[in-house]
């Protein structure tokens, strides 16, 4: 498996995976932080009851929900489409690497790129908040928790999109579903948690560590059991469907 992951990292060369990720990270960080420089928001920066960090985390959650499904779809599509275009499935199969192994390796390799990207994204948002002048002490717990779960959720959707890209050669399908997912992820932030949990992209709302109730923004604990259940389910389904890929005769 390690060898297969290294192969995927080699294939990433010139796929512009890095620039795409950096661009999205900067965009999310900028969009999340833009409101911090408006006059009204700045007035809350030294008021602990206004919870400026929680408000910033909530904005960040919304921006990440709007962009992450599309980012994962694009990354997975680019990394998988090359196998269709370059007859890579057959080449790998004749060297003992089945399609299932390739798909699992692609998810691991892309996760290795996403891990520092998501961490950097959160740090940039925090850095922007600090630069804007938030003087209330930062509670790192919700930020670390959200960043971790955002990464894990991105990995889950990478898995979905890699499988989709491997199964359906027309990559517009996968990217289209990613766009639809981005809409659903943002929309579910406005829905009750009970509804969000039933929609896969709704988990971008379920992992939110901040919520708004009326005019009050505060940290909240997400439903870890549901999130863990969803991630385990995705992992199990992915293991199953990628084993099935090995039996497909191309």
């Amino acid at each position: 498996m390690t060898r297969a992951v290294v192969l995927e990292l080699r294939k990433m060369r010139r796929l512009r995976t890095g620039p795409i990720v950096v661009l999205l990270v900067l965009a999310v960080a900028a969009l999340s932080s833009a409101s911090q420089f408006s006059g009204g928001t700045r007035e809350t920066f030294d008021d602990p009851t206004a919870a400026p960090w929680a408000a910033l985390l909530l904005t960040y959650t919304m921006m990440a929900a709007m962009t992450s499904p599309l980012l994962t779809a694009v990354l997975a599509s680019r990394q998988t489409d090359i196998e269709h275009a370059g007859a890579g499935w057959t080449l790998a199969a004749t060297a003992g690497y089945t399609p299932g192994v390739l798909c699992r390796a692609k998810v691991v390799a892309l996760s290795l790129v996403l891990l520092p990207a998501v961490a950097l994204q959160s740090l940039l948002v925090i850095g922007a908040g600090t630069a804007a002048g938030i003087r209330v002490p930062l509670d790192p717990g919700p930020w670390i928790g959200y960043t971790t779960l955002l990464f894990l959720l991105d990995v889950a959707f990478l898995a979905l999109h890699v499988w989709l890209a491997a199964t359906v050669e027309n990559q517009l399908v996968g990217v289209g579903i990613g766009m639809l997912g981005a809409f659903l992820a943002a929309f579910t932030l406005l829905l009750p948690s009970a509804v969000s949990r039933l929609i896969p992209w709704g988990y971008y709302a379920v992992i939110a560590h901040a919520a708004q109730d009326g005019d009050v923004v505060a940290y909240q604990s997400p439903s870890y059991a549901w999130i863990a259940g969803f991630l385990i389910l995705v992992g199990a389904v992915y293991a199953f469907v990628t084993r099935r890929l090995d039996r497909i005769e191309r």
């Binding site: 060369r13 796929l15 090359i82 007859a87 890579g88 057959t90």
Partner: peptide, 12 residues
């Protein structure tokens, strides 16, 4: 072996 289409990643 080379089956059906010649393999090769175009971006490499």
């Amino acid at each position: 072996s080379m089956i059906e289409a010649p393999p090769g990643y175009g971006h490499l």
